[in-house]
């Protein structure tokens, strides 16, 4: 069955202006649907980190979200460059962010850690030179 997305948003590389829009929109949607506030908080954290990583580290991509019996599913897909060393990328403090980006408070190397900690299921597919696809699921309590 094809997923029916409740959110589908293009995220452009370097577009800090719009940083947080996809996650805010999803948060509002879930609130209107009456989803539990702890679930919304986890979803907001995970979606924000995925969204910012696309803006900061990728060539651009998409954030999509769906609701199923499993929970809230968040999909991030980007056009590259992929993550060369996944194990390293998930280490707290590891970041390749530029000084300019760090000055704005990004680049703590905690985004993927947050994504892992606040999602109940996580799948990462990444290929150097191709792109990164991440699916996170947050269970409905």
């Amino acid at each position: 069955m094809k997923e029916k997305y409740i959110l589908e948003k293009r995220i452009e590389k370097g577009d800090f202006n719009k940083g947080g829009e996809a996650s805010s929109k999803l948060k509002d949607l879930l609130r209107k649907l009456g989803v539990d506030s702890a679930v919304i908080r986890k979803t907001a954290i995970v979606t924000y980190e995925l969204e910012m990583n696309i803006i900061i580290h990728s060539e651009g991509g998409w954030i999509r979200a769906a609701i199923s019996r499993e929970g809230i599913q968040i999909f991030a897909a980007d056009d590259g460059p992929g993550i060369a060393d996944l194990e390293k990328a998930f280490q707290p403090g590891y970041s390749t962010a530029s000084d300019q980006v760090r000055e704005m408070g990004f680049g703590a190397g905690l985004g993927l850690v947050n994504i892992k900690n606040y999602s109940d299921e996580l799948k990462v597919d990444t290929k150097t030179g191709v792109g990164t696809k991440i699916r996170a699921i947050i269970h409905l309590v």
Binding site: G19, G20, S23, S24, A44, Y48, M104, G105, F106
Partner: peptide, 10 residues
């Protein structure tokens, strides 16, 4: 900067 507002909102 404006990303602070996004985080505040979330």
């Amino acid at each position: 900067h404006q990303n602070v507002v996004a985080v505040a909102l979330l």
